[in-house]
């Protein structure tokens, strides 16, 4: 047997051994794997509205948006998520609005109720309204990663900068952490 073929033989042996070892390693990892995919979501109960979501997403327009659990909303006239503190009047005037982009739409329903709706195209996920709603109101406004926008980075850059560790990987089939009846309806859907 010449040197060359001997080396080839050895190499092929090692090759097979490595292939087998990789099969074993694969089996081990697959044993630890879950069936579905994982996506990023933030837990609104841990979120402190630090405003990082608006600026730290890798996307030019953050995938984190404000959502509204209507079932928890008080439909208040004096909405602390909508109105600037010390607003001169309770109306839709830009100077009275807390939202820096005017992304909350206020609609009169009937005395004394007003509906508040998030215009997702305008919302930048800064969480200013959420601070207002959570501090004085029912906490019906909160942030969520919107999965039609999120590109699901392997390491979420907002999660990395989140001071309260509110981000975690959740199963892709249930990618939201909701509040109120919306949470109920959502889990019933799934």
């Amino acid at each position: 047997m010449s040197l060359k073929t001997r080396r080839d033989f050895l190499k092929s042996g090692v090759n097979t051994a490595v292939a087998l070892a990789m099969g074993g390693a694969a089996g081990f990892v697959v044993g630890k794997s879950g069936k579905g995919d994982l996506v990023w979501q933030l837990d609104p109960n841990i979120c402190i509205q630090c405003e990082n979501c608006a600026t730290n997403c890798v996307l030019p327009e953050s995938a984190v948006k404000c959502v509204h659990s209507y079932s928890m909303c008080g439909y208040c006239d004096l909405c602390s998520g909508y109105l600037e503190p010390g607003a001169k009047s309770r109306d839709t005037g830009a100077e009275n609005q807390l939202c820096p982009t005017g992304a909350i739409k206020r609609t009169f329903i009937e005395d004394p109720y007003f509906e508040y709706e998030i215009d997702e195209k305008l919302c930048i996920g800064c969480g200013k309204c959420i601070k207002g709603c959570g501090a004085f109101g029912n906490g019906s406004l909160y942030l969520q990663v919107k999965h039609d926008r999120c590109v699901n980075c392997n390491e979420c850059s907002i999660a990395r900068s989140c001071p309260s560790n509110a981000f975690r990987r959740v199963p892709a089939e249930t990618p939201y952490i909701l509040r109120g009846e919306e949470a109920d309806r959502y889990s019933a859907q799934i």
């Binding site: 509205q49 630090c50 405003e51 990082n52 608006a54 600026t55 730290n56 503190p85 807390l98 820096p100 930048i124 800064c126 969480g127 200013k128 601070k131 207002g132 501090a135 990395r160 900068s161």
Partner: peptide, 18 residues
């Protein structure tokens, strides 16, 4: 700058003052 907050956040809403 990794993981650090960008300086001067324009959306800051300080409810601590209240």
């Amino acid at each position: 700058s990794d993981g650090k907050k960008t300086a001067g956040n324009p959306f800051h809403y300080d409810i601590e003052n209240f």
